[in-house]
Design a protein around this nucleic acid. Structure first.
Lengths: 250, 250
DNA sequence: CTCCACTGGGTACGTCGTACGCGGTTATGC
DNA sequence: GCATAACCGCGTACGACGTACCCAGTGGAG
């Protein structure tokens, strides 16, 4: 629909110039939404609930934000702001990317509900942009931009993919409103059925491993991350840093 | 809530034994939901809309499915069924994983809205389980299960991460109801602002690259996939297959 | 002082998932 | 063959959602 008034949230100024002083702010609203989402899940962060959280009427929020979707975009970018990439690129790309990966994971674990917001393609928010500049900047000196994008896709794919899996169990649990033991009691009949059928040997191994894991989640993550970084190292020309001996690529 | 009647959708039989013959079926309902989602997006697949699609009353669906969430779980597993992993493991793990990756990507491109459903941790649906057995089976002969899980996390993370990005632009577009040119016209002011500010050199490079890409999306995907497979190869013991020491290149 | 662009917010509408219960239909126990 | 209970499809209704619209009040610009 050609809605002539449409402007991206990132271009829309917080408030027009004239008129009385506003009682609230985008930052305050965003913060309230995050606070609610952290404790009750993102689906509990309704417009009415957020407004109540800051002591406003529901419709007042629309003076600050055009729609709930735009508010979620603000929230997502605010979360990106929690990822500390200060001082990047430092010159040591491997250290930079390791720090970045751990920061992203930590943020996701703090705000598991982030898994339920489907990113709008180029975030284009200030924090998202800052991340792009800092993080992709670490490889920018070594590879052309298209290859940089390809390698970053591997890294962020790994990080988000694994942490998404870590987090979705906890989310599922919270959504269902069950305690962990209740949840186990409910899913275990299905698991037991599958184990006893004998048709799923690999799944059986996975369950056994999950019951007595060799590595903690942190260690698992770090192990995979090292693999991914090795993979990136192999794709870099040999001038690329302290530890690199592999042949370069076209 | 200790809702004593809860049973997982995968354990709940389609219909009880007694009573008159049912007019519809889970498969039919699932199919209708997918048909609607394919043409109008997942959010258009409401219970009423799905019921109308098969000529039923809205509430009739609840005779077949306990809730919309469970229906979505059915839909997701049905989509997994589109991923052809017949004949895996074949003995050539690299060929198997390449095929798997391409199948997953093709499925996502056929059903972009799949990006908006957040997976419940262990799908435990029949097709999901079949995938686990076949795909993880390809590395099972070479590595212990915990390492297999780690390597798979890298592969699926890469595949889902990249295709999610490919797809979310199209989804964003469809959701907004805009034509591509309208969408460009609306986001370009922000992009132009960013380019002209001069503060985002990397972002600028990305935009330039996007305007005249060196590689097609398919080629980008295949390039990254080869890198990931190299990475997996490096983690495998040397007994692991036909081509296991030197990575070939395009 | 007047004006009016702005404020916060109450009311109301359309849509969603779905609880509940109805009259009709059918497989089962006698 | 027949009563009965189990199951059918589905109409109605409820509470919650996002948000369009409208209003009375406010405070800076002229």
């Amino acid at each position: 629909m050609s809605d002539a008034e449409y402007v991206s949230i990132w271009m829309r100024p917080e408030r027009p110039a004239r008129g009385p002083k506003p009682a609230y702010s985008r930052a305050q609203i965003t913060e309230a939404a995050i606070r609610i989402a952290d404790t009750e899940g993102l689906e509990a962060a309704t417009m009415r609930r957020i407004a109540a959280e800051i002591g406003a009427g529901a419709m007042s929020l629309y003076r600050y934000v055009p729609s709930r979707d735009d508010l979620i975009a603000l929230v997502a970018d605010r979360l990106m702001g929690e990822i500390d990439v200060e001082g990047m690129p430092s010159g040591d790309w491997r250290a930079d990317l390791t720090r970045y990966a751990n920061e992203v994971r930590a943020m996701w674990l703090r705000h598991p509900w982030i898994a339920t917001v489907h990113r709008s393609l180029p975030g284009l928010g200030p924090n998202q942009l800052r991340l792009i500049e800092r993080v992709m900047g670490t490889l920018d000196a070594h590879v052309p931009i298209d290859e940089n994008l390809g390698l970053m896709a591997i890294l962020t794919g790994y990080v988000e993919g694994t942490v998404r899996e870590e987090v979705s169990a906890a989310e599922e649990l919270r959504r269902s409103g069950l305690s962990e033991s209740e949840w186990m009691a409910r899913s275990s009949p299905r698991v037991r059925q599958l184990l006893e059928s004998g048709e799923y040997p690999i799944f059986t191994k996975i369950v056994m491993e999950a019951r007595r894991p060799h590595l903690s989640r942190d260690e698992q993550f770090r192990y995979g991350l090292e693999r991914v970084l090795d993979c990136i190292a192999a794709a870099l020309p040999s001038t690329a840093g302290p530890e690199s001996e592999n042949p370069p690529n076209p």
